[in-house]
C-alpha cells in the first residue's frame, strides 16, 4: 500500500503547492484525486512515482520509502501515465514494448515473456490491430489506450494515471473508465487524477478531494456526496437526480 506522510512541495522557493498532505491509497481499489486546477493533484501523483522529490515528508510502499528503491526496481512496482502526450513517431508496438524496459537486463532484447506481456497489454486495451501504425495515425482515444497499454506492459501492482480522460470524447471517457475498472478487477491498485467529478463519483472506490494544496476530504463516493464539500471546493451547486436506478449528477454555477 502507498502511504503519503506529511508531503509538502514547492516548484519555486516560497510558493508551496502541497502543504503537508497525509493519506494512503487502498490496495486493489480505484482511488481518484479531484480538485480545482492548480490544487496540487498531479504534483501529488508525480511525488508518489518519485518523479518529483518532496520538500518534506515521505512516500512509502509497503512501509519502505520509495526513494530507497533503485529506478528499475521502483518501475517494476509503480507505473505512471503522465498527462503529456508522448512521442507520436513510434509505432504502437514500439511504444508498448518500452513498458518492458524495467524488466529487461542491460543490453538484452525482448524475451518471450516480454513479448507475451506486450501482446496481452495490447489485447486488454484493444489496440493490437493497430500494432504497426504510428501514434500520429490514431485518434486521441486510441492513443490514450496505447499509453495505458504501455503502463500495463510495465506489469506493476500500482498504476497512476494523470487525467486519462482529458480532451476525450464522452464515449471514449466511458471506455477508458471501463478499462480502469477492469484493471482494478484484475488485481491492480489504480490511483488517478480526474477533472470529471461525475466520472470520479461513478467509478471510484475511494476519492480524495483537494483544494489549494491541502487534502480537504477523503472517502467513498457516498461520503463525498453526503459531505456537500464538492459545492464548496469547486464553487458549484451539485444536484443529484435519480434516473433508471442510477444517480445523475448535475452542476450549476453558485
Amino acid at each position: 500500500m502507498i502511504r503519503v506522510s506529511d508531503i509538502s512541495y514547492s516548484y519555486m522557493p516560497g510558493r508551496e503547492v502541497l502543504h503537508g498532505v497525509t493519506t494512503s491509497f487502498p490496495e486493489n481499489k480505484v482511488t481518484t484525486i479531484i480538485g480545482p486546477n492548480g490544487c496540487g493533484k498531479s504534483t501529488l501523483l508525480k511525488i508518489c512515482a518519485d518523479i518529483l522529490t518532496p520538500s518534506s515528508g515521505s512516500v512509502t510502499l509497503d512501509d519502505v520509502d520509495i526513494r530507497t528503491f533503485k529506478p528499475k526496481e521502483l518501475a517494476r512496482k509503480i507505473a505512471i501515465l503522465s498527462q503529456k502526450e508522448l512521442a507520436l513517431d513510434e509505432t504502437v508496438y514500439e511504444l508498448v514494448s518500452y513498458g518492458r524496459y524495467p524488466h529487461q537486463r542491460y543490453g538484452a532484447g525482448l524475451s518471450p515473456l516480454d513479448k507475451e506481456r506486450i501482446e496481452s497489454a495490447m489485447e486488454t486495451t484493444h489496440v493490437a490491430e493497430f500494432r504497426n501504425r504510428m501514434l500520429s495515425q490514431l485518434s486521441g482515444g486510441q492513443r490514450q489506450r496505447v499509453y495505458i497499454a504501455m503502463a500495463i506492459a510495465q506489469d506493476t501492482g500500482i498504476i497512476l494515471l494523470d487525467e486519462p480522460t482529458t480532451y476525450m470524447d464522452i464515449s471514449v471517457r466511458f471506455e477508458i473508465m471501463e478499462l480502469v475498472r477492469s484493471l482494478q478487477q484484475s488485481g491492480k491498485t489504480i490511483v488517478m487524477v480526474l477533472h470529471d467529478i461525475d466520472l470520479a463519483l461513478d467509478y471510484s472506490d475511494h476519492i480524495l478531494v483537494m483544494k489549494d494544496g491541502n487534502l480537504v476530504l477523503e472517502g467513498t463516493s457516498e461520503d463525498i456526496i453526503a459531505s456537500r464539500k464538492i459545492d464548496e471546493v469547486f464553487n458549484v451547486r451539485m444536484s443529484i437526480l435519480d434516473h433508471d436506478e442510477r444517480q445523475i449528477y448535475h452542476f450549476d454555477k453558485r
Binding site: 518523479i51 503529456k84 512521442a87 518500452y98 524496459y101 524495467p102 543490453g107
Partner: peptide, 22 residues
C-alpha cells in the same frame, strides 16, 4: 550500447524516469 535508453529519453524526462531510467 545506449540505443534502447535513447528511445526512452525521446519520450520525455518524466516518462523515461517512470520506466526506470536513471
Amino acid at each position: 550500447m545506449l540505443r534502447r535508453e535513447l528511445n526512452l529519453i525521446r519520450l520525455g524526462q518524466d516518462t523515461a524516469k517512470s520506466l526506470g531510467l536513471n
